[in-house]
């Protein structure tokens, strides 16, 4: 069902080979940003062109693809990217985390633990974690090469000095395999611990900045912190209003113009699974009723 005129998964085989070489190098040097000759994609830069190129380079005809944006399968950009691969590669797609062999994500890691049989592909806008403190590529590459990372802690120090806590809440820098400092892409810091020793292969693609990096399975990923100000993740006082989950990342939905809010799981697949299994939140009708109403 692949659309005529384009190769399987859009990219030509030579380009795929070039990207695979970059991926192999990235896996061999965990957390190191490998420059690659990113191609112009038929989607705009900043909208997942890096993730799409990585996915296109590793996807095979028998893969099952899941695409999420903000944790949800049905956000417009996730839909658009999923359709792109349906069209150009004709692969099966799914919204179920466990059923996917390949997951492309923007801004979240699924709540359900991933397995060795899966690959997680992140879309990355700014791959350089040192960019906050040093704008120049020629300098940041040197800092990585020489492990000159003192300046990262300067930034965290400043947060504590001025605000009493580390305020970085997403794209929270990590140290991979005890060597490279890496930007985890703008996932909430809530997701950082999931990266550590994850059984799945994690690949990161930055299309506009033309960098690929990786965290191989079972690799240590440590969030930067101070001994007396340890890394901590977001918490909420109540669970998900729909499924009652207290262990998931919650989104805030505004429900009226009088300050009314409800908190719901950002991972829509996770929330749905829980409801199907009979878990209820304070604002949820029983699952069978909502399904019947469809």
């Amino acid at each position: 069902m692949s659309e005529t005129g384009y190769n399987f998964a859009y990219l030509d085989e030579q380009t795929k080979r070039m990207i695979r070489r970059a991926i192999l190098k990235a896996v061999a040097i965990p957390g190191y940003q490998v420059p690659f000759a990113g191609r112009e994609m038929p989607l705009p830069y900043g909208w997942g062109t890096g993730g799409i190129q990585v996915t296109a380079a590793v996807i095979g005809a028998d893969d099952t693809l899941k695409v999420i944006d903000q944790g949800a399968d049905d956000t417009t950009n996730a839909v658009s990217i999923r359709r792109f691969f349906q069209k150009t590669a004709g692969v099966d797609t799914t919204t179920e985390t466990a059923a996917a062999s390949l997951i492309q994500t923007r801004h979240r890691i699924p709540e359900e633990p991933l397995t060795e049989a899966q690959i997680l592909v992140y879309q990355v806008p700014i791959p350089e974690p040192l960019r906050w403190m040093e704008a120049r590529e020629s300098e940041t590459r040197k800092m990585h090469a020489l492990t000159e990372y003192g300046v990262m802690h300067v930034r965290l120090y400043e947060d504590i000095a001025h605000l009493g806590r580390i305020v970085k809440s997403y794209d929270y820098p990590v140290r991979v395999n005890g060597r490279y400092i890496m930007a985890p892409s703008p996932i909430p810091k809530f997701d950082n611990p999931k990266m550590d020793h994850m059984p799945a292969l994690q690949l990161f693609g930055a299309g506009r900045e033309k960098r690929i990096y990786a965290v191989p399975p079972y690799t240590s990923v440590v969030s930067l912190d101070f001994e007396d100000h340890p890394f901590e993740v977001q918490t909420w006082s109540d669970g998900c209003a729909l499924c009652g989950a207290t262990d998931s990342y919650l989104d805030e939905v505004v429900i009226d113009d009088k300050g009314g809010r409800m908190m719901v799981c950002s991972d829509t697949d996770y929330c749905e699974k829980r409801r199907a299994a009979g878990h209820l939140g304070p604002m949820s009708a029983p699952y069978a009723e909502t399904e019947a109403a469809r």
Binding site: G150, H153, V154, Y157, E158, A161, D228, H229
Partner: peptide, 16 residues
């Protein structure tokens, strides 16, 4: 404070 602390942090000091 961070100006003075930077060299310490660069050498591995991690106690705020």
């Amino acid at each position: 404070g961070a100006n003075i602390g930077e060299r310490l942090m660069a050498q591995g000091a991690r106690h705020y």
